[in-house]
Structures are given as C-alpha cells and as structure tokens.
C-alpha cells in the first residue's frame, strides 16, 4: 500500500452537524463581528457632533424605519452577546458545564423577555411610521 499522506478532507465546519453548543458559539462570533461593525459606524456618526446642522440631519435620518429595524437587530445582538458571554463565564469560571444546554435555553428565555421589553419602543415607532 502506498503511504502517501495528504491533507485532503474538505472544510469540516461546512459538514459537521450543528448542535446547541456550536450554534451558540457561531452566533456569538457573528453578533460579536456585527457589534464591532456597528461601533465603527456609530463612532463615525458621532463625528458629525462638531457641526449642529450635520448632527440634526443625521439624527433625523436615524428616526427613519430602516434605522428602527437596525435598532431592533442591535438590541438583539447586544442581548445575545451579553447573555451568552455570561453563560461562557459561568461554564468556565464557575464550572456549570454539565448544565450548559439548560443554561442556554434559560438564558434564551431571559433574552426573549429583555428583547420584548427593550424592543417595544422600536416596534411602536415602526408601526407608527407604517400607520401614518
């Protein structure tokens, strides 16, 4: 038998079955990147604060429906990233690994409540916009 050894296996991340833990991790990465992207846009927007007219113009734009949807997504990303970060801390530094799945779904419920309460103003503003 030939003993040629090659690294030929295709990208495993595309073929591996995704379960709770891996899903949580992927979403954590994704929301982390999204939040970094948001911060860059946010800081760039603050630059307009040096000029009152430019600032008012920007703030008017931020009240548009697209930004309301964006606010909603931002809230979701922040809540998820914060709570999942807490979950990882509890697992790593308190030793709650055996309960990791329960922990994921419990914090998921907490996230849903926070999302509903925190997202209400955005939804209301959006519905208001659609109604007018």
């Amino acid at each position: 038998m030939a003993t040629t050894v090659q690294d030929v296996s295709p990208k495993p991340v595309l073929r591996y079955r995704i379960r709770t833990g891996m899903f949580a991790w992927m979403l954590h990465r994704l929301t982390g990147l999204a939040l970094v992207g948001y911060l860059i846009v946010h800081v760039w927007g603050l630059k307009a604060m040096t000029d009152p007219d430019a600032y008012n113009y920007l703030i008017t734009k931020y009240h548009g429906p697209l930004f309301k949807i964006g606010e909603f997504l931002l809230l979701g990303a922040v809540i998820y990233h914060a709570l999942n970060g807490l979950r990882i801390v509890l697992i790593d530094f308190v030793g709650w690994s055996p309960n990791q799945k329960k922990l994921f779904w419990t914090l998921g419920a907490v996230a849903a409540v926070l999302f509903a309460v925190g997202g209400y103003p955005s939804i209301a503003a959006l519905l208001d916009y659609l109604g007018s």
Partner: peptide, 26 residues
Amino acid sequence: CYTIFNCVQSCPKGIDVTRWLSALKR
C-alpha cells in the same frame, strides 16, 4: 477552548470534557 461542546457531544465514553478543561483553566 471556546466551550463549543462538540467534544462532549462526540465522546463515545460520555466524558464531560469541557467540564474538566474548565477545571484545568481555573
């Protein structure tokens, strides 16, 4: 180790690997 739990999921001996790696981290 980002506590992804694929190791725990795949272990045929049912070892809670992440739990022990966390203990090692501490």
